[in-house]
Amino acid sequence: MTIRIFSLLLLVVSILVVPKCFSSNTPNNNVELSLTPLACFVKTIGDVCHLTIKVNWQSLTPINACLYQDFKKIHCWSDTKKAAKKIKVSLSENMVFSLQDGNDKIYTQQHVAIAASTSKKYRRRLRADWSLF
């Protein structure tokens, strides 16, 4: 009997909580985000790219929103339906820019890619000296 009540409780909790969990990370289609450019060219992979990114977003209803570069908050708007801003950013790898509310809910996101103008890549040496050394 106790197990049956527990299972029922678990089911109710699942129905109520799980969709909420998913929704917090699922981009909201009511908000549109546009970034330009969507790629940054560097000489070689690993170089830092400094660029001014044009941010445009709009929402059907006024919202409080912050733009994040990966996990770093870079600009916020409050009670706004539409915004446009130029922001200077630096990145050395492919990056996700997301528009979020104050509670980690992601409205929408965009990827900005890093591309190298030369194809040369580098990796860490693993230091296999001659066995005698």
Partner: peptide
């Protein structure tokens, strides 16, 4: 990340 000027890195 590994870059050309870092001597601990090797070109791929």
């Amino acid at each position: 990340q590994c870059i050309a000027t870092n001597e601990q890195c090797a070109p791929v």
